[in-house]
Write a protein that binds this DNA or RNA. Structure first.
Lengths: 124, 124
DNA sequence: CTATTTGCAAACACTTTGCACAGCA
DNA sequence: TGCTGTGCAAAGTGTTTGCAAATAG
């Protein structure tokens, strides 16, 4: 059982938290920074706060296009990525996906990552 | 129908090709470069040759740990990643995985990416 | 009061690019 | 010979870190 590290409620922590917590578009740190730039926040602080939120289990990360993206949906789920508009969407993880796990190979599965790439209905 | 771009058979092309073509460990460009360094090859050439091989369909790429890794197995398959030894292994894509596709959402699927993360039997 | 957090700039790691020269076709 | 490929160094990105000043508790 891991005790959650104590965090100070700074103005910057609240800014980053509020900027990401209801997003479904998987923004990068740079994108969050640009939106918060008018507040005078530093980009290092944005990176640090996002990392802290990941450590606290508030955010998950998604690597795409050589950038780390942040996702407030931390329960297991799959993604669909549109190669035209580059949008990443959350989607339910198929129930049967666990049946496909390679446990018979002696591999102890902790996490599944499932992404479909293609063209979303907006872009077709 | 795409006509394959003509490539010159330079010493460097052969070096990079031979260094990666039978690998199953998904090396990075840096790793290939380090192995070929004694030949005097430049790192830019390694990046360029690997990119050319991807363009020609000889290699696939796998993004992991903020680095691009190269995989001579280009037919659809899944990966298992061990969080202890960081090894990425190829594994057969379960046949039923296509049944799980989100085509009912109007999404046109081109590619599936399926990775299990956990601990391999060597590391348990 | 004091330990954590901030903003800035510099440092980092991976990858790409501009350019003059080398070498395949 | 002509044009593509090469090596080098510099530039580009995304991200992290060192440090003095600011500030939450």
């Amino acid at each position: 059982m891991s005790t959650k590290k104590l965090r100070r409620y700074t103005k910057q922590r609240r800014l980053v938290h509020d900027a990401i917590i209801n997003r479904t578009d998987h923004p990068t740190a740079k994108e969050i920074f640009n939106e918060l730039k008018p507040s005078g926040i530093g980009i290092a602080t944005v990176y640090r706060q996002l990392a802290a939120m990941v450590e606290d289990g508030i955010l998950a990360t998604v690597d795409y296009d050589s950038e780390t993206r942040y996702d407030p949906l931390t329960s297991p789920h799959a993604h669909i990525v549109c190669s035209v508009c580059n949008r990443i969407s959350d989607i339910e993880l198929p129930r049967d996906v666990n049946d496909l796990a390679p446990e018979n190979l002696g591999f102890e599965v902790n996490e599944i990552e499932l992404t479909w790439k293609g063209i979303c209905n907006n872009c077709q």
